[in-house]
Amino acid sequence: MSRVTIYRILVIAAAIGILELLCLIGTIDRITMQAPHLIARDLAAILVAGKLNGAIAKTLTNASVAFVLALTVGIATAVAIHGYRALRETLDPLFATYYAIPVFGFYPLLIILLGLGDAPQIMIAFMLGVVAVIVNTLNGLDRVPNVLKKTARIHGMGRLDLAFTVTLPYAAPHVLTGVKLAVAYSLIGIVGAEFIMSRGGMGYEISFAFTNFDNATMYPLIVLILLVSITANTLLSLWEKMLLTRRGYS
């Protein structure tokens, strides 16, 4: 194990240790937060008992649907508009300012349009994620060397062939950056929407537990969401690193 990894583990252990200590000696009172070991115990209990499996499944399914939608629509849009310079220059300011827009403000509108089911939540998560995918895919497509495109042209490839066999694989590391953001945004969108207004899901359960001072349910669920997003992010980062190493960057 490298020195850096050891230090990293030490920092995490120290952070959890300090939190544990502060909870035990009562600096952080029990209503504010439970000690980390209690959170771990409660999380295990919740998962074993399975009473919240429905909520967990609902949130993760919706987030996955939104993620897949954002990914496919995002990549398709980027490939489609990549060649049109004027269109891109027009849309650039929109992309650049997009994340300053409070997308959750559109949630009530979407509820009215799509009904109080899963659709408006998926739509919010999709709206949050799709632009990150578009921007990063465009960024990657811009870096494809001309020689590759010329070679493809010599082989008489069509636009789709070109995208799937040459430009998108070349742009993969950049697309992955967008993918990582899309994972985070789809979770943010779904959970946030569930906080605001919904009939189920982890966000709903968390806010229900919060209003009832039920820390034994709230903290484990929060930790579970954090674990899911950190795991997804770490796996994608490893993949990204692998791609970059294969290309001689390190």
Binding site: V191, I222, S229
Partner: peptide, 10 residues
């Protein structure tokens, strides 16, 4: 990368 919105109750 974590959805910070989940931290709001904390």
């Amino acid at each position: 990368s974590i959805p910070k919105i989940t931290l709001y109750p904390i």
